[in-house]
Amino acid sequence: MREKLCEDLIVFSFDSNGLKKINNTYGHSAVDKLLRLAGICIDYSFGKYGKVYRYGGDEFIALIYVDSRKINLILDNFKKNCGRKQGI
């Protein structure tokens, strides 16, 4: 008989919006910088719980194993981490 897992698989999907406008206004290097920062922020926030992948041009996915009761704390930390990255 299998033991019950104490953690759940939780999937987060991220899509960066507005990149065409940023590209047209500030150029390709600005979009690259934003995508790198998004990846860093997502990985820093979710990577310790599972895996983070970039798929497609501006989409990311995080597959994490964590007790579902911790989701609000993880999301709050994600918001704080992204706020720290602004202006870099």
Rank of each mutant, 00 (worst) to 15 (best):
K48N: 09
L37K: 09
Y49H: 12
S45W: 04
R69E: 05
D76C: 08
L73P: 01
Y55S: 05
K48I: 06
K70Q: 08
K51C: 06
K79T: 15
L75Y: 10
F78W: 09
D67M: 03
L73M: 14
E59M: 06
Y53I: 15
D43K: 15
I71Q: 07
I61V: 14
Y44E: 15
S68Q: 06
V52A: 03
A62Y: 04
G57F: 01
L73I: 14
D43Q: 14
A38R: 02
L63I: 13
S45N: 04
N81G: 02
Y55H: 09
D76H: 09
V66E: 13
F60K: 05
S68V: 01
A38N: 12
Y55R: 00
S68I: 04
E59S: 08
G57A: 03
D76T: 14
S68R: 13
Y53T: 08
D58E: 15
G39S: 12
A62E: 02
I71G: 04
G50K: 00
D67T: 02
G57I: 03
F60A: 07
G56I: 05
I64S: 00
C41G: 15
D67K: 02
I61Q: 00
I64D: 06
G47E: 02
F60M: 09
R69F: 06
F46E: 00
G57K: 06
K70E: 13
K80D: 09
F78L: 13
Y53K: 11
I64P: 00
I61P: 00
K70G: 01
R54C: 03
N77F: 00
L63V: 10
E59P: 06
G56E: 05
Y49A: 08
G57N: 07
V66G: 01
I61Y: 03
K79S: 13
A62G: 11
G56D: 07
Y65E: 11
Y65K: 13
K79C: 12
F78V: 14
Y49F: 15
F60G: 07
I74D: 08
K51F: 10
D76E: 14
C41A: 15
G39V: 13
Y49N: 09
G47M: 01
D43Y: 10
I71C: 12
K70H: 06
L37Y: 09
L73A: 15
L73R: 13
K79D: 11
L75Q: 13
Y65V: 07
F60V: 11
S45Y: 01
G39P: 13
S45V: 07
D58A: 13
I42M: 10
D43V: 02
I74V: 15
D43H: 14
Y44C: 10
D76R: 08
